[in-house]
Design a protein around this nucleic acid. Sequence first.
RNA 1: GUCCCCUUCGUCUAGUGGCCCAGGACACUGGGUUUUCAUCCCAGCAACAGGGGUUCGACUCCCCUAGGGGACGCCA
Length: 495
Amino acid sequence: MTVRTRIAPSPTGTPHLGTAYIALFNKAFAEQQQGQFILRIEDSDAARSTKKSEIDICESLQWLNLRWDEGPDVGGPRGPYRVSERLPIYREHAQQLLHNGCAFRCFCSPERLVEVRQAQQKRKETPKYDGHCLGLSPQESKRRADAGEPFVVRLRVPPDGECTFTDQIRGEITIPWQQVDMQVLVKSDGFPTYHLCATVDDHLMGITHILRGEEWLSSCPKHVLLYDYFGWDFQKLYHLPLLRNKDQSKMSKRKNPTGIHYYRDRGYIPEALLNYLGTMGWSMPDGREQFSYDEFVEKLDLKRITPRGPVFDSEKLDWLNGVYLRDLDDADFQNRYLAWAQRADLGKLSSMLKERAERFDQVLPQVAYLVGEPAPFDADSFVHKSLVNEDIVKILDFAERTLDTVADWQSEAIAAALRSTAEKCSFKPREFLAPLFVAISGKKVALPLFDSIETLGEELTRARLRTAIDFLGGISNKSRKKLDKEWEALFSSDA
RNA sequence: GUCCCCUUCGUCUAGUGGCCCAGGACACUGGGUUUUCAUCCCAGCAACAGGGGUUCGACUCCCCUAGGGGACGCCA
């Protein structure tokens, strides 16, 4: 039996480091076993999935050299490799479950579901579906569906007993069925949920080993049940630990740069990043911390994966990247850093740069803070005639939240969003923008703010804002709460 | 709240009952090499969450407590 592994990202945002982490282990293991590594695009959330995100994901995995043997772009014998192109397959399988009584139609309105959930929470019970439509006769169920009443398909779950399965990293795990919700398998728009399509596709695509994030551990019983209902053999499961923030919580963009592009744009080289990711929850038998991807493939032993969630330590990554840079021979180093600095998006700034320069030697200093690190702040970087420290921190924090909502990362959209926030919290645009300018550029004089932000990109911008906030003393839990409230008030008054 | 997972230096980790009064790496501190800086070299700091068992012997096995994390969506 050939080993087949997969990674199934959902194209709903910027490519995440966690995806690269999981991809690395899947790919390396498949390669070691002379099997195949598959990329499947899990675009089962029609509302949030975007083509751009899919392209970004592919591109960032390619940058890391984590190429796939089968996938939406390269095809393969078990395609198609996009959930949205496999709808008839899921429909057929859902039909089968319905037919066997392993699943049932649910006609409950979203409003009712919310009510039920709230009542359960009030009674301190585990929120889950109350089984309202469980008792519908097949005839009744079919009649209502045929009459055009909207419905979802839910998984039938045993009322008692427990589910036992094996995670290859942790051993046997037992979860009471009472804890397991009657999961929606098919949404009212006819799309499958993750649980249905992932299980069906993993089987149909011949996946033999599932290496995925630990967040899936508690939904395993649903997957076990589905495999049981279909009569299929279950894959070997490996739940890799979740990458963590410094405070041990699941790595998130609010607390850490999580986008793969961020690391590329800051000049980490793929070899180093991959190497570092390979030391998260795993170690070489001989303890070596610097190793190439090929060495990783050669020595990878899934049994050596630890279940403990590792904190992503950017300082150690910096050190490792430095080691790699120093190992490059001089010509290589030159080629690579010049290639890195050769950024097409810098071209957009030409008109602004021309106005501000008489010679090329005056151009470089102007873009320095966009291409490289900005000058460090000093005591009076943020001093402002009408703003106190507290205002400035608030502005920086609100700017970060505002930028979160910008879907189209263009200077016009960025400008509009920030201006609107400034107005809402009754700052003059000039006041609101001043601290941002310093936070972004590190200087009092620089290229226009919104264009700088556009060029910097989302994560780099976020990182600068956060650095500035830290420089100003950070945000205590107490003031964080206050800011949350204030933001909430501004935001909801919008509606 | 319920369920599940986890618990070795600040951080990443080695350790699968005696080799461990716990080893390596990052960070930090001190020293050396170097015209500066960086690199490099040397040294130092620093951990088995707590409590019960099991055992001749526990970092390693079991139980409890505590702490951390995750899940509880017509998101994945």
